[in-house]
Design a protein around this nucleic acid. Structure first.
Lengths: 224, 224, 224, 224
DNA sequence: AATGAATGAGCTTTCATTCAT
DNA sequence: CATGAATGAAAGCTCATTCAT
């Protein structure tokens, strides 16, 4: 089955050369990604040289190229790794298994959890920025996140208020996602004293935004 | 008005070497910036080489270094150029001279105007991204935008509802600014059919967010 | 018959590490050489990587090094394989067992047979070129071909006209050999319409060249 | 006007990036080519590293890439340079301005001159071999030499005996050219005592070959 | 002031060969 | 014997910046 990216004509460039199966290989890849993330934080995109990554990860350069076809593929993998963590958080908290909590609480919980991640792992932010560097990277990235935004956030919205078309719901979900990203980034970058305050504002923004849609829906379909 | 660099403490690195006064020089600088913006869209930050800029701008490389101390200074100048345009728009529409329109209308007007700019100049987006990449650039430019966000947006908020502390108002203003940026970016990147829809969502987001604050303020200060 | 390497004084470097005796091993070596030959045609000497050979031959890289001490040894083996085929052809057609045919006919027959080989196996050409590239390989292989040129061609010349010194005869034989090679190569490279024509020219060249020597010999030794 | 190579789809890769016009630049390019030729002789194709060339030529690597788009382009340029020398020799000796000498003498003269060149410049041989390494290089090369073979050798044949069709004449010319190359190469490689002898054989080969064509022509068109 | 050829440190990537399994 | 992941020296090439003209 062809992957999403194989269809775009813009991708495939960052696909892993070899997927590590043995424990030792997986460990290696992990070390490579950790080193890259660390360097990204310390030096910024331009400062991340393949040889530095190798040295920091305690692997020979050659090993990097066993798993990644090129330098940018490392950044892509990093982004995927972090996006997967976000996905896991969303899955854990948005999924339908805990149906009885009011949506506002669920949302607040998600934001708090994400804020913790952002705060505790500066790499999240760094990766996010790094991935914007090349149009292709950005493209691959957005594609990837779109998948779980669709799966999880759209689904969550659908369960909690039904008054929107599917298309509309996807846009709303994406808007929520994007807003969360920037404001979490912003809270970290201009951290200092306002960090927590910005996170609170994020909650306010999302709550009022969603509420507006609920209200609008309620009015337009009063018979519901 | 003092230039941004005088305030940053990290200043000077991107300051123009020579400010073009003669018509021909000004024209050159304009061509350099246009070329850089164009290349930024096509190739991304990493793909913009000084020699390409020079060739595209039809100026010798040496000329670039007459006006800019280094490559990043070009991106900085580009960011300043674009931020100045945004500032002009905000100044024109938020300033106190047209006091009688309801704030919702003013806001919608601003967003529509900005959306036009973003749509017609994809470079806006590219520049914004480029500036995030280098830590120093990010720092310098965030500061710069902070200035007019403070001046104009904070001012606008202050005029329209007074129930927030100054600090809080600055945060709200910043949140508004960041949200506007991402969603405008997003509307451009995923051009297609949803572009207008995303812009509408942006309006909804901002309106409901601000309204929430107004309401909160009203309650907390019932004498109003 | 002693192997070439015993005579070169530069020997050993390309000697097989292990001579395959079991059927499976022999098959493996054959596959390795076939793969190498094929890649040589497609990519040229510089483009043939050991890993490509292994993949194409469906053997693990390690296997290659079981039989060959290094990359160049593969090319050497290839050259030997092909030279052996040429030798077989020459042996079959030049050897004294078919004494009664006029030398012109014998020569034409040989050329036609060789032309068939060259045409049907483009690798012949590629291998020959590859072997020229590395000084040591060239040395080893020229020596090897020298052996059977001496044995067969010189012998053939000796039988058909006796008026040359041995040294002279070796030079003439070598000249014939070299000319045949280039022109067969040329006929293949510039395939198209002229292929057959070039082969005919080759016959003409060789016939007239040899005839000249016969004539010269006849004059210088009128008593014959 | 499009060059020959621009039409093939296989070339253009070796075209100079910048053609040196000033004396100093021309001198640089000459030094680069000299260094490459020298290294080719000493180390063989594989031993010629761009950095070695640069060091030997006393230029920075960067300079090489100002004039040549890649490593192979250097070999191509080298081949062109030497082919141009051959062309000059052919032009000087085959051209119609010296019409009265018998063709055998002209031919002998050309061969002797070429033999001198081959003997005195080992690079000739090395370059010839190097150019065979990549299919594209060989192709570009043959194309280039074909031009002056057509112009000069075909023309020479046409002037001296008229009994061949044009197409045939081109083949004969090419055959002469190829034979001369190998045997000159051979005379140098297996130099030693036989060097002069091989050159003499080359003359014999060519003379008898051409004479055969003259005779054949004369017979087939006796009325001429 | 204007030019653009010159510079070379340093980057990414490759690939023949080995050797632990 | 068989395997193929691991290795890392070393190659080709780039490109921001300078400075002689």
């Amino acid at each position: 089955m062809a992957s999403d990216s194989e269809k775009t004509g813009m991708a495939g460039r960052y696909e892993p050369r070899r997927v590590p199966v043995q424990a030792r290989s997986r460990e290696r890849v992990r070390r490579i990604l950790d080193a890259a993330a660390q360097l990204l934080i310390e030096e910024g995109y331009g400062g991340v040289k393949t040889n530095h990554i190798a040295k920091r990860a305690q692997v020979p350069v050659g090993s990097i190229y066993q798993f990644f076809p090129n330098r940018n593929a490392i950044f892509h993998a990093l982004a995927v790794r972090y996006m997967d963590r976000i996905r896991a958080i969303l899955e854990g908290q948005l999924a339908s298994k805990a149906p009885q909590r009011p949506w506002e609480d669920v949302l607040d919980g998600v934001i708090d959890t994400l804020a913790d991640v952002w705060r505790s792992e500066p790499a999240f932010l760094a990766v996010w920025v790094a991935v914007q560097i090349t149009p292709e990277l950005r493209y691959a990235d957005t594609n990837y996140s779109q998948i779980f935004v669709d799966e999880l956030l759209v689904e969550f919205l659908a369960r909690n208020f039904s008054g929107l078309t599917d298309d509309r719901r996807r846009i709303v979900a994406r808007v929520i996602f994007e807003i969360s990203q920037v404001l979490l980034d912003h809270s970290v970058i201009h951290g200092g004293d306002d960090q927590a305050a910005v996170v609170e504002e994020l909650k306010t923004v999302l709550r009022s935004y969603i509420q507006t849609h609920i209200d609008a829906t309620a009015h337009s379909t009063p018979s519901n």
